[in-house]
Design a protein around this nucleic acid. Structure first.
Ligand code: FES
Ligand code: FES
Lengths: 161, 161
DNA sequence: ATAATATAGGACTATATTAGTCCAATATAA
DNA sequence: TTATATTGGACTAATATAGTCCTATATTAT
């Protein structure tokens, strides 16, 4: 259903490993690779991506390495997915962008897109610490606009292309 | 986020088209292709898949064709995704099945899987008629276990695999 | 300075998945 | 028997993902 790629899985493992690190200590990629049993080049690649997206921070040189940029409670699943899965928009329309000659009443792409956004909103409630130590059940209590049926959040998110 | 494939999008368009058909009338694949502006071979392939999975029913021969097997209110988004995206399970663990030598405390794959299931549960509330004519907002009000508040967030250790 | 360590950036290949097409077989009705 | 239309599956092409490797840059210690 929600299909996450292997790299996203790996990336999450890496984040979880960093989350369990001592304090502000920096872990070199080689250490992370060893601990997670993932191939070093893959770990290097992922750590670079995570760094570029602000989830982890890095230092070069001797005793350099990586660590979480924030506490595990302040990193959301939405961020992790955005970072590792990329800004993949749901298929918007089977016809090329903007021009749907057929049916102006076809809201199919639109509908899937709204569903996707609702899910994404729900992902904001799940945090790295939840992935680290998952609860019995994950709640998904959102609508695309708001949780109380009002109009507060407009979620004008640009889903790019 | 939730990434649906092009074929799933096409398939949804086809379902919506069938949903708008007169009564119990059968539409041949060629008709569907023309109406949706999709390539005929693709439409044929998708209709076969939809038929095999019980979402539409078919008749052969002259005046044969396809129609929805049930009313649009009785076809859920979950079914559509299951049918068109296949039974794609989320990546369970980066190590081969059952054998995670490293860390017994790694619940990463497990966590994503639970999230995926929660989303799938939410998809049971969305129906073909909603995709046809999407509401302002899609509600996602589920947890993996129940919908009535059940003391979530307990961070209980999940049972293994 | 120089050497050693480690990240940054990106190019590159290999693999897997998705998308799309086509053909032979079967069923139905006129 | 002919025309219509689905069924089943094989097949190729296109794209996305996974994985590796090379060069440049920054940092620290000697
Ligand atoms: S086919 Fe273009 S909006 Fe649906
Ligand atoms: S690496 Fe095996 S369960 Fe997480």
């Amino acid at each position: 259903m929600l299909r996450i790629s292997k790299l996203t899985d790996y990336g999450t493992m890496i984040l979880v490993h960093l989350a369990s690190a001592k304090d502000k200590h920096l872990l070199p990629a080689s250490d992370v690779a060893e601990s997670t049993h993932l191939a070093l080049p893959t770990v290097q690649k992922l750590l670079k991506i995570l760094t570029k997206n602000g989830l982890v921070e890095s230092a070069r040189g001797t005793d350099g390495g990586y660590r979480l940029a924030r506490a595990p409670e302040q990193i959301t699943a939405a961020e992790i997915l955005d970072t590792l899965e990329g800004p993949v928009a749901i298929t918007e329309c089977s016809h090329d962008d903007g021009h749907c000659d057929l049916e102006p009443n076809c809201q199919v792409g639109n509908a899937w897109q709204k569903i996707s956004l609702a899910i994404r909103a729900a992902m904001n409630d799940i945090r790295l610490c939840d992935l680290q130590n998952p609860p019995m059940e994950f709640p998904l209590r959102h609508t695309i606009l708001s949780k109380s049926g009002h109009k507060p959040r407009l979620h004008k998110q640009a889903l790019g292309k």
